[in-house]
């Protein structure tokens, strides 16, 4: 139990430090403005809205839609390459450690509630929804629905992204009277979605990551090929099921160590009584799966 607490404390520290580092433009929060430096031409690995007053770099999903919707390029080579690189190196480690909205959801799940849901019937099937979100709202709509000069809109940001509402919308609208006067039905919809996800997030761990996050979908696809891997020593494993019980994403590490839903939080490793689980860049042992 002590090992689990230590591991979670370490992860929380990394999540907090990363969020502070990538949202270090503190002046933006005071002025109600955003950072306009050249660092914004590169991306951070997690879902971090570039309209957050503190953001010092760009959100990869926002950047991908910006290029897809531009009349000059259409094919987002830079962001795709960036996501392939990050995903191949560390897979969904990004979700577990380097995503500010993942941190928000982890904190929400820490709020005490009489009954917490680990999983439910249909949970696994619903998780494919994020691939549909990626295909429709991130790729197809920005590419195909364009205005007179051929520019598309960031439909995922516009209609879904709760990270943008929380990190960009609320602080900017709160600090700018002109923006406050412009809010309407769209803002109400986005706030409603954010509140809904936050409420569900108290009883079910990371609902946005499970069902809606297109970034999680991309990193999930690359998880099988990623160098940062989870492996289970089959000789040491006593099949007690403790790893599956503590997994916040309801994965079964002994059956599918590199499940695309695993966010590499390391709770299973810390909870394993026989230390049969390994997580890292180390080479796979002969008796480990897979």
């Amino acid at each position: 139990m002590d090992r689990e607490k230590k591991s979670e404390r370490k992860r929380l520290t990394i999540q907090l430090l990363w969020t502070l580092l990538t949202n270090a433009f503190v002046v933006g929060f005071a002025r109600g403005s955003i950072y306009q430096g050249k660092l914004k031409s590169i991306c951070v690995p997690g879902l971090n809205c570039y309209s957050c007053p503190g953001a010092i770099a760009s959100c990869p999903i926002g950047a991908m839609q910006a290029v897809l919707g531009s009349y000059e390029f259409r094919l987002p080579l830079f962001v795709t390459g960036f996501l392939i690189l990050v995903g191949t190196i560390c897979g969904r480690f990004v979700c577990g450690f380097l995503c500010p909205f993942g941190l928000v959801q982890d904190l929400l799940y820490r709020i005490p509630f009489p009954k917490k849901w680990h999983t439910f019937p249909g949970d696994r099937l619903l998780r494919y929804l994020k691939f549909l979100v990626l295909a429709v709202f991130v790729v197809a709509l920005p590419l195909l629905v364009t205005d007179l000069i051929g520019q598309g809109y960031p439909w995922f940001c516009k209609l879904i992204c709760p990270s943008g509402t929380l990190m960009g919308g609320i602080p900017l609208i709160g600090l700018n009277d002109s923006l406050k006067e412009s809010i309407g039905l769209l803002f109400a919809w986005k706030m409603g979605l954010l509140i809904f996800l936050c409420l569900v997030g108290v009883v079910l761990c990371r609902p946005f990551c499970r069902y809606l996050c297109p970034l999680g979908a991309i990193y999930g696809l690359l998880q099988q090929a990623s160098f940062y891997r989870l492996s289970v020593d089959q000789d040491a494993c006593i099949s007690c099921g403790q790893c599956a019980r503590v997994c916040p994403m309801a994965c079964e590490p002994t059956k599918r160590p590199n499940d695309m839903e695993c966010i590499r939080c390391g709770r299973c490793k810390a909870a394993c009584p026989t230390e049969a689980i390994d997580l890292g860049f180390s080479k796979q042992k002969k008796n480990s799966r897979p």
Partner: peptide, 17 residues
């Protein structure tokens, strides 16, 4: 393109545009 988008407040992202 990314820089041009990211240095202006994205009205879609904040829920206005």
């Amino acid at each position: 393109v990314i820089l041009a988008k990211a240095i202006r407040i994205c009205l879609e992202c904040v829920g206005i545009g």
